[in-house]
Design a protein around this nucleic acid. Structure first.
Lengths: 198, 198
DNA sequence: ATATGCATGTAGCGATCGCTACGGTAAAAA
DNA sequence: TTTTTACCGTAGCGATCGCTACATGCATAT
């Protein structure tokens, strides 16, 4: 039985599966409780998605790289940051975006996927590495645009990205964002002077 | 059936369960494959540990807080860092410790537990928060010892801890440590000047 | 020599897993 | 009107799950 490719019901179901995954994670995921919560049956989930694995892949595919895509959109559009203040503004906007109510609730799920990739690289393996690498590449090019050489630009970008990532995780763990917000801006205060190369 | 409390076999089994968990994670953990890998039977695991949950708890209990404990040991013993250079040395030693072959292989498992706690705070909930909080408290006291006021000391400590955490995760994701090492030392280079308050 | 208790094998229980077979309804297409 | 196509309920398969009941060898204590 060929699966329907792009029905409205299927789209709707995909969204609701994703919402369920965001709330419940991937760990103990089971088709029957999921179907019950969605007001349907496991039979229907498999009818639309073929397999459980396919369902998860499809439900996450739309959002999987969204944080990155959004960042690249901000980066490429508007004004590509060509000066230290622009890079700082870009980072602040990105930080704020991660706190927005449409993205922030999904972050724990991404964290679970990234952690799973650390243990079993064959499954969700490159997600975390790819996300960090793309962000780092993005910012490294910005730092090169400021006149930095290749190696320092990469190091500076890696520092900025990885440190921000750590602050993001911490803000999720703490619940509130105040302390992480303060630390994030302190980070920018400390790093920005190094971007003014001549 | 009362479980034996502290036999040698039990200890040995606990260690080997932990080693298995470090390699395979918690996600799809099943008693029978675990027992097979350990050359015993699920029957025996339950005989010694009572339940699967108890087994996991016991296998992880010894190591669960070890990174933190070791850090506190380093911090409290030797010389409690009382100057910026001492804090920097402490951070460098800690960073190196996380790269040591006895600790580093276990970090992905801790990441999995921490990520799980983000999604379901009732289960492994406070692990990540507690670890970050204790580290932050530790360093905040050191910064207060340098003459900082309460709020800046907390922010500086949170920045240092969370950023280091992010760099640590990145180093796990990348496989190699070179880039994260460079970024870590760059981080210290940028932060240390701020510790010289008068 | 007998009794007690730890250690372990065999067998299986009830539940749940992902998934499938089969049949049916209703609407659209021919 | 007939045939196709999308949708969905019922029932169950084989596998695996955590866990338990029961029996037994073996060692030590009495």
């Amino acid at each position: 039985m060929a699966r329907p490719s792009d029905q409205a019901k299927r789209r709707d179901l995909t969204d609701r599966v994703r919402a369920y995954l965001v709330r419940n994670g991937l760990a103990g995921l089971s088709l029957r409780p999921l179907a019950r919560a969605l007001g349907t049956s496991d039979r229907m989930l498999l009818y639309y998605f073929g397999t459980k694995e396919g369902m998860v892949a499809e439900a996450l595919a739309l959002d999987e790289r969204r944080p990155l895509v959004q960042a690249r959109a901000v980066f490429d559009s508007a004004e590509s940051p060509r000066d230290p203040a622009g890079i700082r503004r870009f980072m602040e906007e990105t930080w704020q975006r991660f706190g927005a109510p449409d993205l922030r609730p999904a972050l724990p799920l991404y964290m679970e996927i990234m952690a799973a990739g650390l243990i079993d690289p064959d499954r969700y393996g490159p997600v975390l590495r790819d996300v960090l690498a793309e962000w780092t590449d993005l910012l490294a090019s910005a730092f090169r645009g400021l006149g930095m050489r290749e190696a320092p630009a990469r190091t500076e970008a890696a520092l900025l990205v990885d440190a921000t990532f750590g602050l993001l995780v911490a803000s999720l763990a703490e619940g509130g964002r105040e302390q992480a917000d303060a630390a994030f801006h302190a980070l920018l205060d400390r790093l920005e002077p190094g971007w003014h190369v001549t």
